[in-house]
């Protein structure tokens, strides 16, 4: 499933500065493996060692936060738009 992936500024070091890269996968997990094959190191910024999505990384498929659609198991279709955005968060503690 060919999709377009929007990359946030802080992760463009992995994509030679590209804001958008093409990718392929039947679900989000497969897409991240596909991206990793060309953009080594990217997956490790998005997925924890135990294989789940980082708490402070948001991924959207066609504007839907994947936390509500099955996380890494979220299915992808041809032409889907995937957006990666780091959470904007912090605090005094």
């Amino acid at each position: 499933m060919a999709v377009e992936v929007k990359i946030p500024t802080i992760l463009r070091t992995y994509t030679d500065g590209a804001k958008t890269v093409p990718g392929d996968g039947a679900n989000l997990s497969a897409l991240l493996d596909d991206l990793e094959s060309r953009h080594s190191g990217l997956k490790g910024r998005l997925v924890t060692e135990d294989g789940s999505l980082h708490r402070f990384v948001n991924v959207y498929v066609n504007d839907e936060d994947v936390r509500f659609t099955g996380s890494l198991d979220t299915k992808l279709a041809d032409g889907d738009s995937v957006t990666i955005l780091p959470a904007v968060a912090g605090g005094s503690c």
Binding site: Y60, A87, V88
Partner: peptide, 11 residues
């Protein structure tokens, strides 16, 4: 002691 933008608002 914490802040976080809502995920839909962030997008």
């Amino acid at each position: 002691t914490f802040y976080e933008f809502d995920s839909a608002d962030l997008l």
